[in-house]
Structures are given as structure tokens and as C-alpha cells.
């Protein structure tokens, strides 16, 4: 049963998943390009850290994008058929949802492998200055956990009714429009900023998206 669920999800997500895997491989490789050479160690370390910081933002973004993509493709075909087929299959609804969730976790292995290979290759080819260390394994683990988390959240939202997903999107849109209106009216109330800060600093599972995503760090 799991095998056929996995095969359908693979079929629906394979092209964007392939693209995401290539991107996951490419980001760490690109991040070490152009840094190195015969420079004073202190300067080199500074340049390497600056390059890592420039690229760091792409890892959590990619993890979130892959999570969203896999969640949407996992539920999309069922949504389009009004869930009639899924609901007429002889298994409890929770079990069906768990099978789809599990299949998504398995598919996340592809970009995780992509980032692992890219990180190892980048670490091996880069000139790592004295005092700095490459963390390919840690980066891979962090990326994988972030992608799993993003997928789980988006899976839960996408698995609900279109109305539920609509409410979530409408709430986010209302927040942004409200922020813009306050800004236009020059009323000094910042709604979005503190919220993002809270999310960023939150010491719960979402905290994984914050912090330093550095392949090479002190």
C-alpha cells in the first residue's frame, strides 16, 4: 500500500523534486566559488565567512519551498477530485493521511542527498582558513529537519479543506495589507516586523529556520 502511495507521489512531484535536488546540490558548491587563493589568513577567513553568510539565506528558503511543493503535490490530485477516490478506499482517513505524509518524508531524501553531496564536495574543494571548520553533516541534518518540518506544516494545511487553506492565506494577506495600510497612513505601528522577529527567535521547532546556516563557520 505504501509503495503505491509513494509511487504516485513520486510521479506527481518528480520534476520539481529533481530541480530542487539539483538546486540543493548547487547552493553549497556555488557558495565556495571565488573564495580562497593566496591571501592573508585573516582576510581569507573574513571573505569566506562573508560568502557563507550571503548564501545562508537560500538554505531555509529552499527547505521551505520543497516542503510546500511536496505538500501541494501530495494532496493536489485528491483535492481536484473532491477527495472522492481517497475517501472510498478501504482504510481509515488518518491512515491514508499518514501514508501520504510518510511518502513525502521518503521523497525528501532526494534533496537531502543533494545537499549532502554538494556540501561534501564544496568542503573538499574549498580552501578552509585556519580557525574555520566545514560542517557538511550538520548543514545536511539541519536542512533535512527544516524540510521535514516545512513539509509537515504545509501538509497539514493543504490536507484540510480548500476553505481552511483559504483562511490561512487570507489571514496572511490581511496581515500584509494591514501592514501596508498602516505604512501608507504613516501610523507608526509595526505588526509584521515583531511577528517575524518572534518567529525568528522562537525557541520551538520553527527556530530551525533562524540562526546561522553556514557550511563553513568558526
Amino acid at each position: 500500500m505504501f509503495q503505491v502511495i509513494l509511487s504516485t507521489q513520486w510521479k506527481w512531484a518528480r520534476l520539481p523534486l529533481l530541480l530542487a535536488t539539483i538546486t540543493a546540490f548547487t547552493i553549497p558548491v556555488l557558495s565556495v566559488q571565488g573564495v580562497g587563493g593566496n591571501q592573508i589568513q585573516g582576510v581569507l577567513a573574513f571573505r569566506v565567512l562573508a560568502a557563507m553568510e550571503n548564501w545562508a539565506v537560500w538554505y531555509p528558503l529552499l527547505a521551505a519551498a520543497i516542503g510546500l511543493l511536496l505538500a501541494v503535490t501530495a494532496w493536489g490530485p485528491d483535492h481536484r477530485q473532491g477527495h472522492t477516490y481517497a475517501l472510498s478506499l478501504p482504510l481509515p482517513r488518518w491512515q491514508y493521511a499518514m501514508l501520504r505524509l510518510g511518502a513525502g518524508f521518503v521523497l525528501l531524501a532526494a534533496p537531502a542527498i543533494g545537499i549532502a553531496l554538494g556540501s561534501v564536495l564544496a568542503s573538499a574543494t574549498a580552501t578552509v582558513p585556519v580557525g574555520l571548520t566545514a560542517y557538511p553533516v550538520a548543514l545536511t541534518i539541519r536542512f533535512t529537519l527544516a524540510a521535514i518540518l516545512a513539509f509537515t506544516i504545509f501538509f497539514a494545511i493543504a490536507g484540510g479543506s480548500t476553505r481552511t487553506a483559504g483562511y490561512v492565506l487570507a489571514a496572511m494577506a490581511a496581515l500584509l495589507v494591514g501592514h501596508w495600510l498602516l505604512d501608507v497612513a504613516t501610523i507608526p505601528i509595526d505588526v509584521v516586523g515583531p511577528l517575524l522577529e518572534r518567529l525568528y527567535d522562537f525557541r520551538g521547532p520553527l527556530g530551525i529556520f533562524g540562526g546561522r546556516w553556514m557550511l563553513i563557520d568558526v
Partner: peptide, 22 residues
Amino acid sequence: PETPHLYPSLTVAEAVRYHGAF
């Protein structure tokens, strides 16, 4: 059902294999 409810992107053989697994 009144309106076919199968996944349109699957082939006939894939749909049969998928359905039979349950």
C-alpha cells in the same frame, strides 16, 4: 461514481496497480 474519480496523470496499468493494493 457518476464522474470518474481516478487520478488523471496515472496510466491505466498504474491505476489498476494502485487500486488493487488496497
